[in-house]
Amino acid sequence: MASPFNIVVIVGSIRKESFTLKIANALARLAPASLQLDVVTLHGISFFNQDLEANPPADWLAFREKIQKSAGVLFVTPEYNRSIPGVLKNAIDVASRPYGKSSFLGKPIGIVSNSPGPLGGVNAAKHLQNILPGISGPILGQPEIYLNGVGDAFDDKAQLTKESLQKVLAQYIDAFAAFIERQNR
């Protein structure tokens, strides 16, 4: 079998016990052998400031390089105030610069949004779908995945216990794997 495709999974929440991080880790456990998911949190990525582009901070360079070396990117995000969290937007700004040299350019993209509420972060996903064209590669359109009611889906060891959610995540990660394979032929 060929080496697995390295996928950077960007977690859009920095909360220690975030549902988003738990979902990202569950996806990593459910991923088929064709994918190796590298779950990345956004702790330590400094604020984007165009004044620093001539001499970017080390954290920007490391984040950009990680994305550049990947075969694709999977965003897993909660919804904050009907949009994406500020830390995620900052990370996108850092990785998409300097102008014309986005680290996401050409990378196949997946989007998983979530919420403990009933809407599943649909607005966050839609905002990512608005932000990413022009700075990324193709975005997986189907299946779309908006996870709602995730607040009780994990046990105290962060293990996924909700069977229906596990089934949805498994279906999505399998579809994403097929998408990555098609894009990297």
Rank of each mutant, 00 (worst) to 15 (best):
R15S: 12
A28Q: 15
K107H: 09
R82D: 10
G120L: 01
A62M: 09
E65L: 09
V150D: 01
K66V: 01
V11S: 10
I131C: 09
G106I: 05
A91F: 08
L74G: 04
F63P: 05
F47S: 12
A125N: 11
K16A: 14
V76D: 01
F63R: 03
N6L: 05
I7N: 03
A24W: 05
G72F: 02
P138E: 12
S34W: 00
I14K: 14
K66Q: 15
L160Y: 07
K126G: 01
F47M: 15
D93Q: 10
P57W: 02
K69A: 15
Q171R: 13
S34A: 13
K22S: 10
I84L: 13
S102H: 07
V168R: 15
P56G: 10
L35F: 06
I67Y: 01
N6T: 14
D156Q: 14
G121W: 00
F104C: 10
I45V: 15
V39L: 07
V168H: 02
I84S: 04
Q129L: 07
I67C: 06
G106Q: 06
P4K: 02
F104M: 10
A178T: 11
I111M: 07
Y172C: 06
A95L: 06
N49S: 10
I135P: 08
N148W: 00
D51N: 13
L88M: 12
S3V: 02
G100E: 09
N81K: 10
Q50L: 01
V87A: 09
P32G: 13
Q166W: 00
